[in-house]
């Protein structure tokens, strides 16, 4: 992993995440989140998780975020008005977050310093991840399909108009 690749990607991730939180237009927030997700996919690729990186873009950037944008456009959300009043809350939250993030970063840094394990060439390939997924994690995997079914049914029921034509 070269610092020349890591630092630009990390900076892009952090800046676009800040843009998600601060942008007043929901569409801009969503596009910034897409940038965050793509930067994180690059991080996954750097960590030899190629399959996860590809899935990150297909599932998150390609499907979930399009759903977000679709809903924003469907509701025709306008820009949020400038935040007023709760300056105390915002600066308080920001301050607490900076302190906590600093603490977390320090602990994580100290506890994961030094070299990690030596990885095989095949680490993170489809075959290896799939073997883990369909042996050690088979039951959670099957349960996931039930979860998705529940989510599909729930989403349809919730978003359905009661007075839509064709309904009883």
């Amino acid at each position: 992993m070269s610092p020349l690749i890591f630092y630009p990607v990390a900076a892009a991730a952090v800046l676009s995440a800040l843009a998600v939180v601060t942008a007043r237009s929901p569409v801009r927030s969503a596009m910034a989140l897409v940038a965050t997700l793509v930067s994180l996919a690059a991080c996954f690729a750097m960590l030899q998780a190629h399959l996860v990186a590809a899935l990150q873009i297909i599932v998150y950037a390609g499907a979930v975020m399009v759903l977000f944008l679709f809903v924003i456009m469907l509701l025709n959300l306008q820009d949020d008005p400038p935040e007023t009043g709760r300056a105390g809350l915002r600066f308080g939250a920001g301050g607490v977050a900076v302190v906590l993030a600093g603490g977390f970063a320090k602990v994580l840094w100290e506890h994961s310093a030094g070299d990690g394990a030596v990885l095989a060439e095949s680490f993170g390939t489809t075959k290896v991840v799939a073997r883990s997924l369909f042996s050690d994690y088979l039951v959670p995997f099957e349960l996931t399909s039930v979860l998705l079914l529940v989510a599909v049914v729930g989403a349809v029921v919730l978003a359905r108009r009661d007075d839509a034509p064709g309904q009883d």
Binding site: L51, A53, A54, I58, A61, G62, A63, V66, T125
Partner: peptide, 12 residues
Amino acid sequence: DVGLLYILAMVS
């Protein structure tokens, strides 16, 4: 290794 998934990702 994940060439086809990469293509699907870019298409999406």
